[in-house]
């Protein structure tokens, strides 16, 4: 390993950290829509500007109560064993998710209403 190698590696690591901070603090904006998916299929799209409470039926039974309150979303209650989704807390930024694995429920924040096509691509990639 030569000196320039170390400069290169250091440079890339610094670039990655800077990029991460930009993404995290500057680009990530407040979302407008919460998309609720069960087993990959979109069940509901909720606007974050309206306070609501929705009960979602999980895959093969189970219930999750999703609450929209002042531009943020959280899982108020779930009858799953681990309650990870409830502990996730409030989310509001684009790209953030609440996942309830036992019920296969995913709540994701988006910029706007999305078509089903975009979602299919997403689920293939993951």
């Amino acid at each position: 390993m030569k000196k320039k190698d170390i400069y290169l590696i250091g440079g890339i690591v610094i670039a990655a950290v800077i990029f991460f901070m930009i993404v995290h603090f500057v680009i990530q904006k407040d979302g407008a829509v919460a998309v609720i998916r069960v087993d990959g299929k979109i069940m509901k799209e909720l606007s974050l500007s309206k306070n609501t409470t929705v009960t979602v039926a999980g895959y093969e039974g189970g219930e999750n109560i999703v609450v929209v309150e002042q531009g943020a979303v959280y899982m108020q209650e779930a009858d799953c064993p681990d309650k990870i989704c409830v502990h996730t807390g409030k989310i509001s930024k684009v790209g953030e998710t609440i996942v309830c694995l036992p019920h296969r429920v995913v709540v994701e924040i988006r910029k706007g209403m999305c078509g089903a096509v975009e979602n299919q691509v997403d689920s293939v990639v993951r």
Binding site: A16, F19, I27, V125
Partner: peptide, 23 residues
């Protein structure tokens, strides 16, 4: 390629992780 194919720049958020992984 992913940004181009999916038409969504949100994937670029993964870039920092991928840079470190590449190193």
């Amino acid at each position: 390629a992913a940004v181009w194919i999916m038409g969504s720049s949100a994937i670029a958020y993964y870039l920092p992780v991928l840079l470190i992984a590449g190193v």
